[in-house]
Design a protein around this nucleic acid. Structure first.
Lengths: 253, 253
DNA sequence: AGATGTTTCTCGCATAGTGAGAAACTAGCA
DNA sequence: TGCTAGTTTCTCACTATGCGAGAAACATCT
């Protein structure tokens, strides 16, 4: 059984990583030892990285990250970092709860979904990177509920709120009340408000300052033990949200 | 004439770059077209990147930067970004002036050289990443001159200032006076104070708030037309410093 | 439905990358 | 200055590695 993934490129990446991690402290030979790569090969790879611009020489056989790498990192925006932080946690959660988990953020009056996980994730109509109206989904309601007061009022006045199912809340006043409740209780419920046959619960993800920076949700096909399910899963969801919050703080500026 | 640099790894990197640049907009096949890489190969490479953690799948054949890449970018500190911003500018300057250009920053009472450029750059004894006493070099004097008053006083009191050549300024009071002049005039001159036979001029690099964040210098073998050379080159140096300052502001936080 | 466009196989081939060893360099020390 | 220990660079024959056409499975859009 052959490892079918490109081997030589992986070596290059392994070295790139090793070099960047250790600043300009170690010689190529030392890095070769660390990465279990024969010395001459290590030199070849690093030379290639250098003249591709991913590394720069830094005096006597030392190397540091190069311009191309810096340029790349310019594309690593907050959204991306957030997604990468959250993914493994949501994966675990989805497995444990046996349903689909998602993470979304608020972006110009809509929810952008950054992560989706779970075995039946394909069934769900949302897609990663997709934007969706905020007023109907669990994640959306959580995010709206924790908006600054004036922004939320503005949103409620702007409308319109179109019904996606017969249960979608379309009245601004009712929606406002619902959002107040969400803010008070710390979680939101979506019971077939966006798609018939789908219910979900959602909680906010907070950074260390307590600001809501995202929301995560767990969804499943509608079943009867509604409230019991909510009650049992909420703590799990909240733990995951906390963990994402903590990790995000490490990564984001 | 053999292309001695590893080819397959470079393809992988090319793809990595392409994928990250375009967010999650294009399909693998499209990227393959862009990068002139056959479709099946592109798939192999991207698959390898994915399970090495440098890319993450983002729904329907789209990909975005992965956790490993995000982690790497954590190691791209300010020094590095500064170096990468400055390098091309200093390269151009060195070519134009026909001498060696350098960039240094102030770090625990010494100058750390981040960039060195110019055809005879190898001759000069300084090395990238090297630390050198601040009091004698042009770059060092510029950086000292723009230190907060109390920090500068402290530095002057601490000493000792050892002579590297017969022209090195070793008296704290004289050095203090020299620094005042440097601050006033906006540039520093080193006339064989660090190595006999080498003279240089240096100017500060400022960020948008006017703070001095680095200094750059141009050095050449001692010649007689001293002042004339200084006068002619200073504007060029200063332009380069300004440009570096502007660009640095875009990149650094 | 059919019609694009994209992803995933399989497979033999040639090249691209490998790694031991030895030679050329470098730095630091006596 | 001449040593030694630690690097970097080269050469070279080998074979594993990555290649790419083509066709088949899978999605997407009208």
């Amino acid at each position: 059984m052959r490892e079918t993934s490109l081997e030589s490129p992986l070596r290059t990446l392994k070295l790139l990583e090793a070099v960047v991690r250790d600043g300009a402290k170690s010689s190529v030979a030392a890095l070769a030892r660390e990465t279990q790569i024969p010395v001459p090969s290590a030199h070849r790879h690093i030379a290639a990285l250098v003249d591709a611009g991913f590394l720069s020489p830094a005096g006597y056989g030392r190397h540091i990250a190069g311009p191309k790498l810096a340029a790349l990192s310019g594309f690593l925006d907050e959204k991306l970092l957030m997604a990468n932080v959250a993914r493994p946690i949501l994966d675990r959660l989805a497995k444990r709860m046996g349903c689909v988990t998602q993470l979304g953020i608020f972006e110009n009056d809509m929810v952008t979904y950054l992560v989706k996980s779970g075995q039946s994730a394909g069934d769900l109509f949302t897609k990663v990177g997709m934007q969706l109206e905020a007023y109907c989904s669990g994640i959306g309601k959580v995010l709206l509920a924790h908006l600054p007061d004036d922004a939320r009022s503005e949103y409620l006045e702007a409308g319109p709120f179109i019904a996606l199912t017969e249960r979608t809340i379309t009245d601004p006043d009712l929606l406002g009340a619902e959002l107040q409740q969400v803010a008070r209780e710390g979680f939101a419920v979506d019971d077939e408000e966006v798609v018939t046959g789908l219910q979900c619960i959602a909680v906010p993800v907070r950074n260390s300052k307590g600001e809501v920076i995202a929301a995560i949700s767990a969804s499943r096909a509608t079943q009867s033990d509604h409230r019991r399910w909510q009650a049992r899963q909420l703590p799990l969801l909240q733990d995951a949200a906390d963990e994402i919050g903590v990790r995000a703080n490490i990564v984001l500026t």
